[in-house]
Computed example of a mutant assay.
Amino acid sequence: MTIGNEDELRGMREIGRIVANTLQAMAHALEPGMTTAELDDIGRALLDRSGAEPAPESTYGFPGATCISVNEEIAHGIPGDRTIAAGDLVNIDVSASKDGYFADTGASVRVPPVRPSIDRLCRDGRRAMQIGIAQVREGRPVATIGHAIGRFASDRGYTLVRNLASHGVGRALHEYPEEIATWPTRGDRRRITDGLVLTVEPFLSTGALWAAQETDGWTLTAEPVAPVVQYEHTVVATAGRAIVLTLPG
């Protein structure tokens, strides 16, 4: 989507705030002994109360309102009877629509006690996302996002999962520009235009390179097996700095 007027920006800000508030509430509610289905129920109730519709469910028939991925699962985890335990690393991904506007956000949440290496990975995962967002500006090549994140990851000895990309969003959950690499690439000549709405969501790891699909047809796991974190915002490009749409408030 390319935002062309204030009404569209207001619509995107509203759904961005809804998914951000939902993610924040789910992260605060997360505790050992809870099942992923119980956590998803919290997210569904909050989205419903805000008049929003879960996007994975409505767009793809995903069996849940939100994606909840635990430990070896890194994305698209199906909410169910898996019990969250102390020390787990839980990724929560919330995307939804309201009045024809879509927004997408996510974060990896640590359940204490947490190893120092995982604490560091989470801090650096959030920083990698922020570095990517800092590249979003009218006129810049799309590929600068992945090059900047790649330099950061390489300098700190991390890897990036290379088959889970950022994407355009706004009037649909996934739209042009699709497959925005959050790792260094060659040959992408696309440029960021004023008003373009997109996600920035690197998957930072201590060794994983790919996401492998499990037999349930949805859940993605790390390959090679290693801790992975993901942080995601929906942003809109301007001539200056990017506007982050998925902020709680």
Rank of each mutant, 00 (worst) to 15 (best):
G4A: 13
R10C: 05
R13E: 13
I15P: 09
I15E: 09
G16L: 08
I18P: 14
V19Y: 07
V19M: 06
A25C: 02
A25L: 08
M26T: 03
M26F: 05
H28M: 02
A37C: 03
E38P: 03
E38H: 02
D41R: 13
R44K: 12
A45Q: 10
A55Y: 12
Y60R: 05
C67N: 12
C67K: 15
E72V: 01
E73Y: 00
H76T: 05
I78S: 05
G80K: 04
D81Q: 10
R82N: 02
A85K: 01
G87C: 00
L89F: 00
L89H: 00
V90F: 01
A103K: 12
V111L: 01
V111M: 00
P116W: 03
S117L: 07
S117T: 10
R123E: 03
G125N: 03
G125A: 07
R126A: 12
M129Q: 15
I131K: 05
G139S: 04
G139A: 04
R151A: 06
A153Q: 09
R171A: 08
E179I: 13
I180C: 08
D188N: 10
V200R: 07
S205G: 12
T206H: 04
G207I: 03
G207K: 04
T215L: 13
T215H: 12
W218F: 15
T219W: 04
T221M: 02
A222Q: 05
P224E: 06
P224W: 11
V225N: 04
P227E: 11
V229Q: 02
Y231V: 09
E232N: 13
E232G: 10
H233Q: 13
V244H: 06
T246C: 06
P248I: 11
